[in-house]
């Protein structure tokens, strides 16, 4: 991890106007409000981290920007123009590329075929220019510092980190101005997470606006310029890097005041206690302050 610290310091916060702007955006499914009053600005050359626990509304937010779901309230604007996406294609055409947790890669297809999927370079009669496609895929991956010895290899045989990187490299190559990354480090080990974070910074350096969705404040703080914490479908924190420390962010992310209350409750618990008394029904009997609190 040590190799990846300090990426964020290199970042220069640019004062440009936001590419994607959400103003008071909400989404309800019937009478369930998955997302309410979210305001968010994605700027070029900036990494905006969206943090939140499971069910906080992160994936709903992505789906709105990526065009998988239409929002029900508020305004979504791209380059100052109000938009309402009804398909992923529309979002893509506006320069927004989304790299999902499941990566949108077909596991049995080769690296180069996946790289150009949906954007194939064709000659006459819809024939693909395979030579050119392989060359470009190789160049682009190399540019990102990814080395894949055999471009004919099925993507499914690569490691999770390599797959993330292919998806990111693909998004950058196809002219994305905004890159949305859905929990790219969630399923990865420490080392691979580091590699992916490095590419996130590379994407930013290439001039993209990056939305980095994660529930890991450590990863977010390593690269982010701007942090938004979602809680129960609402924005609970919206701040710049300068205004917050990692401890504060972790605290906020982990539940803030709720965590404090929890730690108070747990104070009476002796972590070293080993319970050996087993009752007739096989259940461990243990007296804990938690029981009282929960009751």
């Amino acid at each position: 991890m040590s190799t990846t610290t300090g990426f964020a310091e290199e970042a220069t916060t640019s004062p440009t106007s936001p590419i994607v702007h959400l103003d008071d955006v909400g989404k309800s499914y019937g009478n369930v409000h998955a997302l309410r009053g979210v305001t968010l600005a994605v700027r070029q050359g900036e990494i905006t981290c969206v943090l939140g626990d499971n069910g906080a509304g992160k994936s709903t937010l992505i789906k709105i920007i990526a065009g998988l779901h239409e929002h029900t309230d508020g305004v979504l604007s791209v380059n100052g123009e109000e938009r309402r996406f009804s398909s992923p294609r529309e979002s893509l055409d506006s320069g927004i590329a989304t790299v999902y947790q499941d990566l949108a890669l077909a596991p049995l297809m080769s690296v180069w075929r996946n790289f150009f999927l949906g954007n194939e370079i064709t000659k006459a009669l819809g024939t693909m220019d395979a030579t050119k496609m392989k060359r470009i895929a190789h160049e682009e991956l190399t540019k990102m510092g990814i080395s894949i010895p055999n471009l004919e290899q099925p993507v499914g045989m690569l490691s999770g980190g390599q797959r993330q990187c292919i998806a990111i490299a693909r998004a950058i190559y196809f002219g994305a101005k905004v890159l949305i990354l859905d929990e790219p480090t969630a399923a990865l080990g420490v080392k691979q997470s580091g590699v992916v974070l490095k590419y996130i910074v590379k994407a930013r350096d290439a001039g993209l606006g990056v939305v980095f969705i994660t529930h890991n404040p450590h990863h977010a703080y390593l690269v982010g310029n701007h942090f938004v914490v979602l809680k129960l479908g609402r924005v609970s924190l919206d701040t710049h890097r300068a205004d917050i420390s990692l401890e504060q962010l972790t605290n906020e992310m982990a539940g803030g005041s709720e965590l404090e209350a929890l730690s108070h409750e747990l104070r009476g618990v002796d972590p070293e206690l080993v319970v050996e008394r087993v009752e007739g029904n096989g259940q461990v009997a243990v007296e804990s302050p938690l029981d009282k609190g929960a009751g």
Binding site: R89, L103, L117
Partner: peptide, 17 residues
């Protein structure tokens, strides 16, 4: 390429257009 993709992972194929 699309035939391979819709059979391999239809959701992924849809996501990239």
């Amino acid at each position: 390429n699309w035939i391979f993709a819709v059979g391999g992972d239809a959701a992924a194929a849809r996501a990239v257009g």
